[in-house]
Structure formats: C-alpha cells, structure tokens
Nucleic acid binder design. Structure first.
Lengths: 286, 286
DNA sequence: GTGCAGCCTCCCCCAAGGTGAGAGTCAAGG
DNA sequence: CCTTGACTCTCACCTTGGGGGAGGCTGCAC
C-alpha cells in the first residue's frame, strides 16, 4: 500500500495533472487519501492500473461519465460495454466514410456512379393511407403497423411497380423532432370504396397524376431501419435529387409541399430483422 | 438573386440558427447582406449549396477554420484536402480499433494472443553508441544517421540476435516533448578500442549483463516509422511488459533507470520507405 | 394599431481539458 | 532553524461547436 504523489502518479499513468484533478472532481479516479490540511492528493500504487485503463478508454472517446460506470462493473460486463460502444463508433465511422467518398468524388469532378437519378410517371390513383406524427424510429414501426393491418385481412395481390407501398414524409422527421409521416398503398379506383370499408383503420384518398425523380437506395439504408441508425445514404440521395432538380430547372418546393418526399418499398419477401426491402427515395414534381 | 431570411436558409441548408450565426462570426458562411439597422441577416439562395457543403464537412469533423480555407480553394484542391483529412481520420480510427479489440479481449478474460512476452539473457558487452535529445520523429532519423555512419566504413558482419542494433529511450519521448534517445550496436570486446577509433562520431561504452523481457512488434508499428504516426501498438506492448513485470514480481523501475526501454531491430534487408525491419520492444531487468 | 412570428444580441452551459497566476507545502541542504 | 527549490493547491479564463433561454427589435398581416 505504497502512497505516491500526484506527479509520480501522473508519470506512471501517463495522464496529465489537469486530467487527474478533473477525474478526481468527477469521481472517476479518486485519490486513496487527500490531506485535509494541504489538500494534497495521494494515490495508492495499485490505482495506477485503473488509471491506465481510464487513459485507454479516453483514447476511445468514451465520456468520463461512461468510464465511471465502467469502472464499477465487473470486467466481463465492462468488456461488453466497450464492445457496444465500439460497434457504435464503427457504424458512425462507416457513414462518415461514405460521406467523405461522396464529397471527394463530387468535388474532384468525377460524376459519382451511385445516387443516379431516374424519373417515372405516376398516374392519378386512389390510396389507402395511415398517417401519424412520429419521430425517426416511429416511422418504421408505423410502417410495420400499416403492413400488419393490410395482412390481417388480405386482398388480391397488388404488387409490382405500380402498386408498391410507399411512405410520405410531410415534414422534417429526425431523431428528436417528430413530423407527420404517412404510409400509403395504391388501390384500384374501382374497388376503392369497397376496400375502404374493408380497412376502417385506413383513410381513403386520391392523389393527382405527377412525375417523380427517384434514387435507388442500398438495401441496408432504411430510415433508422430495422437494425440501426439513420444512414448518411438518405442525406446523399436527397442531395442528389436536389442537384438534379436544379440542373433540370425544376422548382421542387411547390410539388414537395403538395406531395411530400417519398420512400417506395419494393417488398419481395417477408421483412425480418436482418433483411430489409429494396426501396427508393423520390421527389415528386409536376 | 433571391434573398431569404436566416430561418428559411436554416431550413434549406439543414443548419441551426445558432450554427449559422457562428459561421457568420467565424467568416465561414457570411450572409449576402446584413441590414445595417436591424442586424437581420439575408442570404442569397445560391448560398444554400455552400451551406450544405459546410454541413457535410462538419459531419466529417473538419474544424471550421479548415472549412473556411476549403471553401476558398478550387474544388479539385478541396477534394484533395478532404481526402487527406480522411486518410488521417482512418489511420486514427485503425489505431483505436486495435485498442478497443485489446481492451475487450483483456477484460473479457481472453488472454490476447498478441503481445506475448518472452525473456532473454544479455551478456555484458561493449556498445558503439550515438545519443541525442530528439522528439518522436527525430528518433527515427537519428537511427538513419546511425546506420549511415556504420555503413560508410563497413566492418565484418555482426548481425544475428546477439549483435542486433537497438535503440534506448532514456526518457519520455512524444510528439511534442523530446527526450534522450540512444542508438547502439554491440561490438566484440576485443575489437572495441579499434572500432571506437574507426568511428570517431560514436561513443564506446559497455553495459552490464542483464535480462530483458520483450514483446515482438508487428512490422508496421515502427515508432513514428517511415510512413506514419505513432502506433497504438507501442502503448499496448508497453502495457504487456508492465503487466508481465507485475505478475512476475519484478520491480522494473530500478533497472529501467539504469538501462532504459529498448527497441531492437532485426534488419534483414535494406530499410526502405515501404518496408520496415522486424523489431521488438524490451524492458530490461536484473 | 396590434398581434405574433421572426430575428437580434448577450449571457451562461456542456465536454475535457490546457494554460497561467498566486499561494501554500514538503523535504533536503546549509 | 531557515531557506531554497520542487511540488502542489485552487481559481479563473481559453478552446470548439454549438444549445438554451432572456429580453428586446422588426416585419408583416389583419
């Protein structure tokens, strides 16, 4: 139980005096003894090990509060926490890599091969809709709810490009602010009323004929999809659509207000936790 | 040349009001016009594009100062800067991944296969040495200087484990603080004086017999090696040696002061920019 | 004219420390 | 015992990139 001063402790742990005093204040690394009179901090030699651990965890950018909790866990639990943190870091890093690649390509003049914009005609059609104010994660569970309603009392198939289910983002939807999101499924006009009675939870409405500019999305890029965090893909796709609109002299604002940004899902099989449907991101215009 | 208010601009650029005011203050994104009387900021619609770029660059964690410079460059130059920044981020990330893996393995009880500690006997021997105060990068160029002196007037080969050249870090050497670093080559005692005259730039001294605990280092982990930044490998190797010393009840402090941390280089071929010699990291003890 | 949304500046707050000022403390040498 | 020099203390301010709110103007519509 050898006691050492803060300077010696700093050398051994490779932490700065400032850091050590801060960690004391935050309760992360409290000295074994603090002299009442002088205020001098004295550390136990055995604390060096913990200090090294703290230093390494800080290199991983773990907040001090998280480190404090970690030190109170048993090691196996701590390892799992670190692993979880690292998975998070990796996923953020992947998104940023995507963004960096995109920017470098765009600025150096290479027309990026991803995020190619196509257009399509959408006729006037009848829709069965479910609309609610939700946040980012809620958008996906609203979709599951919508699908569940449709599956509960099935109907003749309406799949294929014309009939794909889609969702409309009527406003800004992010992790902390919610906005109106609507899920829609096109139905044949002649059966519309019959179907509306069949699904009383859903609202029947029609939308005018229009065109859409769209960008196909990677399979793993669902909006806060089943597995994860919102992807940078959406941002880049939105950017691509905006750029396309500008290039083609289309004022997207008015149609956007009337028709909203859309995500169309081409469901080919059951949606599970690990497999997500193909989809695209569309900007309507007239 | 449509003018819009800061609120509208914030919506279109997806930046917060706070951020926009800050960017104005820092000269990163200056409004097209600021009303003298009211102080209201008015942006040009065409500035939205730059703002989106700024938003993305901030996601890459580029400092505002760097972004400001970037915006003043032509796009190709900007792309190169972003790419350079991203390479830096990737290399830091790789180091942190290594650290995270190590920690998770260590804490979850798995004895990590890397950083295994061995020991060896070192007899009393004569050394030809070159010692200087250098910083992290300087340590490597000091080594090149040392090698160059030895090669200038070659001698019978003294390679192999006994005769490998090594360097001693007598104090803390980091990127911003320099410490004494010594490069040494063992020579046969019977020829010591002759050789000392042959290499007047080098100092002849002898070191006592001792033992060393060592950890083999990956080939790409040279200290601020030819290609890059200091690797986390050194930190982990040092950790492994410290842990080993503790486990085996060895007080490393005294021998460390007398003999210093060592890096031994097993040069098998020419040292080029892309190939680095095998080496190990050693803690002497008695 | 009046209401209200939008905008302004100013101030304090966060993490995780770095830097320095001014004062108190410890241990060793004279 | 006293001094000196090395250590250490607290306190306060600076950094980056904003967030949050207070209190006060502005611009525009009815």
């Amino acid at each position: 139980m050898e006691e050492i001063g803060i300077g010696e402790f700093a050398r051994r742990s490779r932490l700065s005096l400032k850091a050590l005093r801060l960690y004391d204040e935050r309760g992360v690394l409290v000295p074994a003894r603090v002299d009442e009179v002088s205020g001098y901090r004295y550390y136990d030699l055995a604390q060096v090990e913990a200090a090294r651990l703290v230093a390494m965890l800080r290199q991983l950018d773990l907040p001090l509060a998280a480190i404090k909790e970690l030190l109170a866990c048993d090691p196996v639990d701590a390892a799992e926490r670190i692993a979880a943190h690292w998975r998070e870091v990796e996923s953020v890093h992947d998104a940023r890599r995507e963004l960096a690649d995109y920017l470098v390509n765009r600025l150096s003049g290479k027309r990026s091969v991803m995020y190619e914009v196509g257009t399509r005609e959408i006729p006037e059609r009848s829709l069965l809709c479910l609309k609610r104010n939700v946040d980012e994660r809620g958008a996906w569970s609203l979709g599951k709810e919508f699908i569940a309603i449709l599956r509960e009392r099935p109907l003749p198939k309406m799949d294929g490009r014309e009939g794909a289910t889609f969702s409309i983002y009527w406003g800004e939807v992010s992790a902390d602010s919610d906005g109106p999101v609507e899920w829609c499924s096109p139905v044949p006009a002649e059966r519309a009323n019959e179907l509306a009675e069949h699904y009383p939870e859903l609202i029947l409405r029609s939308e005018p004929a229009h065109r859409e500019a769209y960008v196909a999305m990677p399979n793993d890029a669902l909006p806060a999809g089943p597995g994860g965090n919102p992807s940078v893909h959406w941002q880049l796709a939105s950017e691509a659509l905006r750029a396309w609109a500008e290039e083609n002299g289309i004022n997207a604002e008015s149609a956007l207000e009337e028709l909203g940004m859309r995500i169309t899902y081409f469901v080919t099989g059951p949606v599970t936790k690990t497999s997500a449907p193909d989809c695209d991101f569309a900007l309507p215009f007239t």
